[in-house]
């Protein structure tokens, strides 16, 4: 491939990130979808999701089980056709250019979806073949070396542990050098150490200009994303940076630390202005809307019971739980 510009504006140039960033305006966002709807039978799973993922960005996609995360991801990469809505993925129309999207997107399914009765090498080789890669053998060898699995290349994939399977899956969906990764709960059931390594790898990829959309349940992972979106019952409730999202909710959180906080919790829950109480060891985290004198209420309530009240930062978890509850309350 020459270093010249792409034959069509919609296609991002080879080599990804650094150059893409320089050419900023000519490169379409990694994902730009508007008002996506998807219905299965009577059940509308996705109800008007719009989101935008920039190049080189790690975008966290959060929401409870069954909120429509997987369906949204499938809509964005052309695995499903939306009932309504439109958008582009890497500049390709999600409605009409699904085939092109598939070639430039790496999709890691929620459940391990490589062939367990094939060896590691055979799996990678198969993927390389269906993506019609030119230097198939070299690419597979490189991926194996990158995984540190070169010695075990001829082992059956089914014999790998969960963490290794997940690493293999990431390597396999990276094999054809996609510009965008769609990762559907990639770290579910993976031990903390493997999770940490996985995220380090994601950041390394992002640094190379690869865009990542990752869905997750883990709040610590949410905080590692450049941007976040929270989806609930098929609706995107909020998106932005973690700091923006936290700030926008106007919440304040206090830590109530003292003996027998388990007895205090039910009382505190009933106090005016308290939206949420969560236990963390021998402390309670109490969250409520800012500007309603929550600190005062708490201090009065625990006065004389040996507990101390201190202001702490509102975490993204507090915010999401707050949003989930208020959305559910509104729906009732």
């Amino acid at each position: 491939m020459s270093g010249e510009g792409p034959p069509r504006a919609a296609r991002p140039p080879e080599g990804g990130g650094a150059r893409s960033a320089l050419r900023g305006e000519t490169v379409p966002p990694a994902i730009d979808v508007r008002d996506l709807h998807k219905r299965f039978g009577d059940h509308e799973v996705v109800k008007g999701v719009s989101l935008k993922v920039e190049r080189g960005e790690i975008f966290g996609f959060l929401g409870p089980n069954g909120s429509g995360k997987t369906t949204s991801i499938r809509l964005m990469c052309g695995l499903l056709t939306p009932d309504a809505g439109s958008g582009t993925c890497l500049g390709y129309d999600i409605l009409t250019e699904a085939e092109s999207i598939k070639r430039h997107v790496g999709y890691m399914t929620q459940r391990f979806s490589y062939w367990e009765d094939l060896t590691i090498r055979e799996n990678l080789d198969f993927i390389a073949r269906v993506f019609e890669m030119r230097d198939r053998r070299a690419a597979v060898d490189k991926a194996l070396a990158g995984l540190g699995l070169a010695a075990r290349a001829d082992q059956l994939t089914g014999q790998l542990s969960g963490g290794w399977k997940q690493r293999l899956a990431l390597a396999a969906c990276m094999l054809h050098e996609p510009e965008l990764l769609l990762l559907d709960e990639p770290t579910a059931g993976v031990d903390p150490n493997a999770r940490r390594e996985f995220w380090e790898e994601l950041h390394a990829l992002a640094a190379r200009g690869i865009s990542v959309l990752v869905s997750t349940h883990y709040m610590d992972e949410a905080e590692r994303c450049h941007k976040l979106a929270y989806i609930l019952d098929g609706r995107l409730i909020v998106q932005g940076t973690a700091a923006d999202i936290i700030a926008a909710q106007h919440l304040e959180t206090f830590e109530v630390r003292g003996e027998r906080q388990d007895r205090l919790a039910p009382e505190i829950e009933k106090l005016p202005g308290v939206e949420e109480v969560a236990a963390f060891g021998d402390a309670l985290h109490v969250t409520g809307a800012a500007g309603h004198g929550l600190e005062r209420t708490l201090t009065d309530a625990v006065a004389g019971r040996g507990a101390r009240v201190a202001r702490i930062d509102t975490s993204i978890e507090d915010v999401f739980i707050h949003m989930m509850r208020s959305a559910r309350k509104a729906a009732q």
Binding site: R11, S100, F126, E132, R134, H176, E177
Partner: peptide
């Protein structure tokens, strides 16, 4: 490879990959 157009055609390479698998 992994470039672009003419991808709607039947590809012997992909087909053979599936046969092998």
């Amino acid at each position: 490879a992994v470039a672009g157009d003419g991808i709607t055609r039947f590809s012997l390479g992909r087909w053979w990959g599936i046969v092998l698998k």
